[in-house]
Design a protein around this nucleic acid. Sequence first.
DNA 1: CTGAAAGCGCTTACAG
DNA 2: CTGAAAGCGCTTACAG
Lengths: 327, 327
Amino acid sequence: MEDVAEVAGVSRGTVSRVLNGAFHVSPESQAAVRAAMRETGYVVNQSARSLVTRRSGAVAFVLSEPQDRLFEDPVFNVLLRACTQILAEDDSSLVLMLASTPQERTRVMRFVQGGHVDGVLLVSTHTGDPLATELDAAGLPVVVCGRPPDAGLRMPYVAADDRGGARLITQYLLDQGRHRIATVAGPDDTAGGVERLAGYRDVLGARVPDRGVVRATDFSIAAGHAAMAALLAGCPDLDAVFVASDLLAVGALEALHAAGRRVPDDVLVGGFDDSAIAPATRPPLTTVRQPLAQVAAEMVEVLRQLIDGRPASSRVLPTTLVRRGSA
Amino acid sequence: MEDVAEVAGVSRGTVSRVLNGAFHVSPESQAAVRAAMRETGYVVNQSARSLVTRRSGAVAFVLSEPQDRLFEDPVFNVLLRACTQILAEDDSSLVLMLASTPQERTRVMRFVQGGHVDGVLLVSTHTGDPLATELDAAGLPVVVCGRPPDAGLRMPYVAADDRGGARLITQYLLDQGRHRIATVAGPDDTAGGVERLAGYRDVLGARVPDRGVVRATDFSIAAGHAAMAALLAGCPDLDAVFVASDLLAVGALEALHAAGRRVPDDVLVGGFDDSAIAPATRPPLTTVRQPLAQVAAEMVEVLRQLIDGRPASSRVLPTTLVRRGSA
DNA sequence: CTGAAAGCGCTTACAG
DNA sequence: CTGAAAGCGCTTACAG
C-alpha cells in the first residue's frame, strides 16, 4: 500500500479511501490510485484490514449432525454449493466446519468467537442440538437452515414449507384415487420428520391407515428400505406411500421391488426434496420440490442483516409438486 | 492479551510465548498465564497473528470444474468431508471455493495471493484447466487431487490408481467367463476417463469388441444412460460392461433395464468409485474402491510439506475390487 | 527466562 | 478533498 501511495503520489490514507468506496476522493486521485494499484499488482492484506475493522469477510457453514450421513444427501450439497456461490458474489468466503463431536463443537465456538468469521450458517436438523443452543446463547449472528431444532432459540431460520409440501403430495395421492395411503416418516427429532408427517396427517386425518405410519431411523437409503419393509409387513394392503425424502424413497422403491409390488401400478410412491436422484430412480420419482437455491440466497441475506445489526426475521419458502412416473 | 498479561503478572511477550509452544518460559509463568487465559476467557485474534506471521491457518479447497455437476458426485463429497475433518484436527480450516467461470478464477487467484490461505487443495479433473496453470505459474503451495490435468505442471498430486483399478475389474469380468466385454468410458479430457480406459485396454488388448467403447459426455447418471444405450445399439451382443464411474453405472443399469437385459444374468456390470450409491443400485453394484479418506489425508500431508517448504512428491494409492450383485 | 519495543499492513477520526 | 498519526492485537529479535 505504501508503494501504491508513492506511485500514485498520494498518502496511504487516500489509497485506503479508494479501496473502501472512494468517498471524498477526487476523480484524479482515484484514477492515479487505480493505475498505481494495477501497476504494482497490489492485493489488500485481509489480516491487516480485519484487525482494524473487526470484520473477517468470511462466514462459517456449519454442519451440526451427529451422524454426518447428511453429507451424502444431495440436498445438503446443493445448499452448500449455492451458499458458496452467493457469498462469492459478495466477495466473502465460506469456511466449512463439521460439528459432530464435543471437541468439534468447542472448536466451532472458539473459531466463531475468535472473530474468524462474521456469522454462521447453521445446518442443524436435530432437536436438542447443543451447538445451536450455545451459538444462540452467545448472541452471535446465526441463521439456521430449516425450522429451528428447538423452539425458544432466538435465531432466525429459513426453511422450505415442509408441512405444506407434504399436504400437496398427500392430496395428490388421494386425487389419484388411492385410499390406503401410508407414509415413511423421517426421524421425529428432525424438522423434516415432524413437519412432513404433520402435513400428511393434515390431509388424511382419520383416513390414515392402521399401522400406516413408520418412522425411518435417519434419512438414508438403507433406512428407507427398512421402513418400507416394515410398512409392508404391518399394512400389506397399502396402495400409496408418501416417503419423507428422496433418499428414503430410493430405499423404499428397492423394498417394494423386492416384495414384488409394482410402482406405480400397485403402489404409488411420492418423495420429498426433488434432489438429483429423483429423475434417475426406477420409475422416476414424483416428489416435492424444495427451492434450495432460494433458501441459500435468503439465508445469506438474513445473515447479512444480522451482521449489520439490522432486524431480521425468519422466512418460509413455498414448495411445489413435481410429477414423474412413480405417482 | 494485555489483560491476560496483567492478570498473570507477566509481559505480553511472555503470554505470546506460552501461546506459541512455551519455549523459554518458566513453569511458574506458564501456569500463571494459562490460569489467566482461562479466567479472562481469552481467545487469540487470528488476524493480528496472521498479520505478523504471514500464515492464515486456512487452506482453500477449490473445485475447478466447468460444469459444477461434480457437486452431485458422492466421491467429491466424501473427499470434501474428509479434508475438512483432517484439517480441523490440525486446527486449521477449510475455505470452499468454486472456480467455474473466469471471474471466479480471478477471485481464487486474488484470494490465494492475498494470503487468505496458506495453500490450495485443487480438485481439477479436466485437462487444460486454466486455474491449474495459473496456480502453478504463481508458484503457490498446491496439491491436486487425481492425476494432474496436464503434464508439465510442477505441482504434486495424490491419486487413486485408476488404471490399476480398471485392470482389476476388467480382469474380474473376464474371469467370470464373459467374452464380449464393452466399456462406458469417461470423458477423454479427464484423468478418470483416460486412465480407466487405458486399464481396460491393458487387459483386453485385441479382445475389445468392435464398437465396444463409448465415451460418456460427463460423469452423470444421464450420460451413463445415453452411453449405455449407444453401446447396446452398436454392440448388441455384449455380455459385460465396465462403466467408468458408479454414477454412470446407475444410468447404465437403467438403460439395460429399459432394453430388457437382465443384470447380472445377461450382462455383467462393473462400476468405479464404490460411492454411497453402489450398494443401493438394483442389483447392488460390483465396483472398484477408491480409498478417498486416505487420498484426503495424503493431500493434506503433502500440502503441509509444501507450505513448510519441505520437498514433496506425488502419491498414487492402490484401489481394490468390491464384489456385489451386478457382476 | 523475560521485558521493552519495533513492526506487521491496514483504517479512520481529526485537522486542515 | 487529503495528509499525518494513532491504533487494531499480535510476534519476535534484542537486550539483559
